[in-house]
């Protein structure tokens, strides 16, 4: 699993825009009633990097961060 990227979501910034869900619905979700989006998983495969980076850029609240370091 050393090729995995970890993704984090800053709940204090997130405004639940949900653009991330349209880009990566298997990573992000905006459950009804939740004030912020949630992560469905916090690791993505390296071949999903491009989509994940696009989701991070597309976030108007700049709440998504990815980290290519190995997970402990």
């Amino acid at each position: 699993m050393s090729d995995n990227l970890s993704v984090s979501l800053d709940g204090t910034r997130c405004k639940s825009y949900g653009i991330c869900v349209s880009v990566m619905p298997d990573v992000f979700d905006t459950p009804p009633g939740s004030p912020t989006a949630v992560l469905l998983r916090d690791a993505v495969d390296a071949d999903e990097r491009e989509d994940l980076e696009e989701a991070a850029r597309a976030c108007p609240a700049q709440a998504i961060a990815l980290d290519s370091g190995r997970k402990p």
């Binding site: 869900v21 349209s22 990566m24 619905p25």
Partner: peptide, 9 residues
């Protein structure tokens, strides 16, 4: 239905 948008995109 936002989750369905990915594939159309």
């Amino acid at each position: 239905r936002v989750r369905s948008l990915r594939d159309y995109r």
